[in-house]
Design a protein around this nucleic acid. Structure first.
Lengths: 174, 174
DNA sequence: CGTGAGAGGTTCGGTGAACGAACCTCAGTC
DNA sequence: GACTGAGGTTCGTTCACCGAACCTCTCACG
């Protein structure tokens, strides 16, 4: 969350928040789970100031949550930012926050987006359990994002449009 | 996290972060799960500016995450702030963030604090599953916080001292 | 070879939130 | 009637966020 550290808070939650608690950071990570991996795509989807995006990405790379590397398609000056194993540990936190947000500020038309178990098509609850088969989905790659009934999604950027169809997590978009 | 809203982010996670994403808010909720419920106790434990604490508590009450009510012990001008049912939905998010923080910035001596299943004494993983009996602990009242080997905890306030012994969640401290 | 465009930034001035100290108010108590 | 502790509010300073403008490097094209 925030600019300064939580000094004097000898607590794992505080440590975690120092890494991912600043404004924008968790939305950025959400998109990383969705498969966004390029600087310009993050920008397009989040409407985040460039300076802030650069700072957040650098901080995430620095703390080992994301990895920055040259784009695989060889193209010139491109990079990609992908979640490290450490970053993927945030999976249950992202899911839980999403379910909370949905309950706290529900859409009249239903959920906007949700996560579905690839194996059986069941929805994931706040504990990442598949509501159909009961399994806890520990690996985000075993799930997909699907638009829900309330996904009016006014955004028209490349990424938001791509996400109007189901998409497997951690798979780069386009 | 942050001051402003995430306009134009039509997403449950963004909605969730608007409610609990500002600086201090999640630490405050962590303490609420621990059983802290008085204004002055939050202050003592968090070293948070009074104005900010008042603003955060008001916002949480306003959004239905916490409830403010006169203290049950009848004492004069006292209040207590407790989690509502909506607030308790944050349980998996708090646990997941804690486990993440622990992995991202580990203590040499081991975890500082962790959660234990009351029924069987097993530790909870990032998905709130008991590592001993395998059950998903959906209700925070079925768990307790226990200090771990790395709990050097320099703080000497009332609350931090009380939490050096195992304590059932959602049970008011002292 | 020169020009242009897109990716991935950095720099800069203005605004608004967080910080911390001081002050305020009300209930009970001595 | 004075004091104390709970639960705040007010105020000036500092610092991060914002957004616009600018910079650099690589590739594509003529």
């Amino acid at each position: 969350m925030l600019p300064k550290d939580y000094a004097a808070q000898d607590c794992s939650i505080a440590r975690g928040l120092e890494l991912v608690g600043e404004r924008w950071t968790l939305l950025l990570l959400r998109d990383a789970f969705y498969g966004v991996c390029r600087y310009s795509d993050f920008r397009e989807r989040l409407d985040i100031p460039k300076a802030v995006l650069a700072a957040r990405l650098a901080a995430l790379v620095d703390s080992g949550v994301m990895e920055k590397r040259p784009a695989p398609d060889g193209a010139g000056t491109r990079h990609e930012y992908v979640l490290t194993d450490l970053g993927k540990q945030l999976w249950p936190a992202v899911v839980a926050l999403g379910r909370f947000g949905e309950r706290a500020a529900p859409n009249a038309e239903g959920p906007r987006k949700h996560f579905r178990h690839l194996d059986c098509g069941g929805r994931l609850d706040a504990f990442c359990r598949c509501e159909r088969c009961g399994a806890t989905v520990e690996n985000p790659a075993d799930a997909e994002v699907v638009p829900g009934p309330g996904d009016r999604n006014a955004r028209e950027d490349r990424i938001s449009r791509a996400l109007r169809a189901p998409h497997r997590l951690l798979t780069p978009i386009a």
